[in-house]
C-alpha cells in the first residue's frame, strides 16, 4: 500500500514534470516563464492544504486529546511551512523575470508570507515549550488560530493595496487556456499526492518517535 502510494506519486510527479516542461506550449505573453506556474501554484495549493490539515488535526487534538491527531497536526504544520516557503521562493523566481521585481506587495504573496511566519511560530512553540504535552497543546492552538486569521489578513491586504493605489499587478490577469489548464491540474493533483504521502510518512515518524 505504501509502496503503491509512493510509486503512484512519483509517476504523477513525472507526468506533471513532463507536461510542465515539454507538454505545454509557451505562453503568448510570458513565454517560457509560464512553466514556473506549474510548480508555484501547486505548491501554494499544497501549502493551504497542509494548513487546513494542521487546523483540523489541531482542533481535533485540542478536543479529543488523542496523540494521533497531534502526529497529523505536526506533519501538517511542518509541511505548511515547507510548501509556503517553496511558494514564496518560486513566486520570487517567477516575479523577477516577469514583473521585473523579486517581490510585489500582492495580497497573495503577503498572505503566504504571513502563513509561513505563523507556521514557523507554530513549530517553534512546540519545540521550545517547557514540556512536550504543553508543546502539543500550544502548537495545536497556534495552528487553529493561524488558519482562522489568514483569511482576514488576506482580505485586509487586498483592500489595503487595491483601494488605495489602483489594482496592482496580479496573477489573475493570466487567462488560462485549456493547454495550460491540463498541466496545471495534473501538477496540482501530483503535488497534493506528494503532500499526502509526506503527511502520512511524517505522521508515522512522529508516532514511532512518540511511542518511545
Amino acid at each position: 500500500m505504501r509502496a503503491f502510494a509512493v510509486g503512484g506519486t512519483a509517476a504523477l510527479l513525472s507526468v506533471g514534470l513532463f507536461l510542465a516542461l515539454w507538454g505545454s506550449p509557451p505562453d503568448a505573453y510570458q513565454g517560457e516563464y509560464v512553466r514556473i506556474m506549474y510548480v508555484h501554484v501547486p505548491a501554494a495549493v499544497s501549502a493551504y492544504g497542509a494548513a487546513a490539515v494542521a487546523f483540523g488535526a489541531g482542533a481535533l487534538y485540542l478536543w479529543r486529546r488523542d496523540r494521533r491527531w497531534d502526529f497529523v497536526g505536526r506533519a501538517g504544520a511542518e509541511l505548511a511551512a515547507l510548501f509556503s516557503g517553496l511558494t514564496l521562493l518560486t513566486g520570487m523566481l517567477w516575479g523577477k523575470p516577469v514583473w521585473g521585481v523579486w517581490w510585489a506587495w500582492d495580497a497573495r504573496l503577503v498572505t503566504t508570507a504571513v502563513l509561513f511566519l505563523l507556521y514557523v511560530g507554530c513549530l517553534l512553540v512546540r519545540d521550545l515549550a517547557d514540556d512536550p504535552e504543553r508543546g502539543r497543546r500550544l502548537s495545536a492552538a497556534v495552528a487553529v488560530l493561524a488558519f482562522l486569521d489568514v483569511p482576514v489578513v488576506h482580505y485586509s491586504v487586498v483592500w489595503f493595496r487595491t483601494l488605495h493605489q489602483g489594482p496592482s499587478i496580479s496573477l489573475q490577469g493570466v487567462k488560462l487556456a485549456p493547454e495550460f489548464l491540463l498541466p496545471l491540474a495534473v501538477n496540482a493533483v501530483a503535488y497534493l499526492a506528494l503532500l499526502s504521502v509526506l503527511l502520512a510518512e511524517r505522521a508515522r515518524l512522529a508516532s514511532l518517535e512518540g511511542e518511545r
Binding site: L118, G121, D130, A141
Partner: peptide, 27 residues
C-alpha cells in the same frame, strides 16, 4: 498566555503577534 511556558517566549511573541495582527495595522 501561550508563550508563557515556552523558552524564548518573549522572542516568539512578536513572531506570532505581528503577522496575526496585520489586519488591525492596515485598518
Amino acid at each position: 498566555a501561550l508563550v508563557a511556558h515556552v523558552r524564548a517566549g518573549p522572542l516568539l511573541m512578536p513572531l506570532l503577534f505581528l503577522p496575526a495582527t496585520v489586519p488591525v495595522l492596515l485598518a
